Simulated assay, not measured.
Amino acid sequence: MIADRIRDGYGEEEKLNCAEKILYASNEVYNLGLDKNALKLAAGFGGGMCTGDLCGAITGSIMVLGTMFVKNNGHESDKIKKLIQELISRYKEEMGYIDCIPLKENHLDEQVKCRNIIVKAAEILDDIIEREAK
């Protein structure tokens, strides 16, 4: 699962940001078939889109949900909208925030940095994917 990999330090040696860690790990775990150029799409979403806004772990998770549950575009059904709303709602309920700055202020660990923040998004994402795959 994605959460287990990130918990074990996935992407730290490569200096991946939070969005990249979610997308790259998901690509491997769920065989998304994303090539190097597709993976680079996550580069600007780390650190709350480099502005401290919506956490990159969430935006990376949204990229994964779109890749897995959208055939052509986001307007084809309400499914992607509902999955994203669930992801954000559950994350906010468990962590208290969805924006990078307050998440870091309240959950950053000096030793593992944002790892626990990213793991929480990955746990919720894993849960949604497992349920939807059934």
Rank of each mutant, 00 (worst) to 15 (best):
M1R: 14
M1K: 15
I2Y: 11
A3V: 02
R7N: 10
R7I: 02
D8L: 15
D8Y: 11
D8Q: 15
D8W: 08
G9R: 14
G9W: 14
G9I: 13
Y10M: 10
G11V: 07
E12D: 14
E12T: 12
E13F: 13
L16A: 08
L16Q: 04
L16M: 13
N17R: 09
N17H: 13
A19R: 11
E20D: 09
I22G: 02
I22A: 00
I22V: 11
Y24Q: 04
S26T: 04
S26W: 08
N27I: 01
E28A: 09
V29R: 09
Y30C: 05
N31L: 13
N31A: 14
N31F: 11
G33T: 05
G33C: 03
G33W: 05
K36Y: 04
K36G: 02
A38R: 04
A38Y: 04
L39I: 03
L39V: 00
L39R: 05
K40L: 09
K40M: 09
K40F: 07
K40C: 06
K40N: 09
L41R: 00
A42V: 03
A43S: 11
A43C: 10
G44V: 06
G47Q: 03
G48Y: 01
M49K: 04
C50S: 13
C50G: 10
G56Y: 09
I58F: 09
T59M: 06
G60P: 00
G60K: 04
M63W: 06
M63T: 04
L65Y: 12
L65D: 01
G66Y: 06
T67E: 08
T67I: 05
F69M: 01
V70I: 02
V70G: 00
N72Q: 09
N72G: 03
N73F: 10
N73H: 11
G74H: 00
G74K: 03
G74F: 02
H75A: 05
S77K: 09
S77R: 09
D78E: 12
K79T: 04
I80S: 01
I80H: 01
K82D: 05
L83G: 02
I84G: 03
I84N: 06
Q85W: 06
Q85S: 08
E86N: 07
E86D: 07
L87K: 01
L87G: 02
I88Y: 06
I88H: 06
S89F: 09
Y91Q: 07
K92Y: 10
K92E: 14
K92P: 05
E93C: 06
E93I: 07
E93S: 12
E94C: 04
G96R: 08
G96T: 06
I98M: 12
I98A: 13
D99C: 11
D99M: 13
C100N: 12
I101C: 10
L103G: 08
L103F: 14
L103M: 14
K104M: 15
E105V: 13
H107I: 10
D109W: 12
Q111N: 15
V112C: 14
V112T: 15
V112P: 01
V112L: 15
K113L: 15
K113R: 15
K113F: 15
C114A: 12
R115M: 15
N116Y: 14
N116E: 15
V119G: 09
K120I: 13
I124P: 11
D126E: 07
D126A: 07
D127A: 12
I128S: 07
E130Q: 11
R131F: 08
E132F: 06
K134W: 04
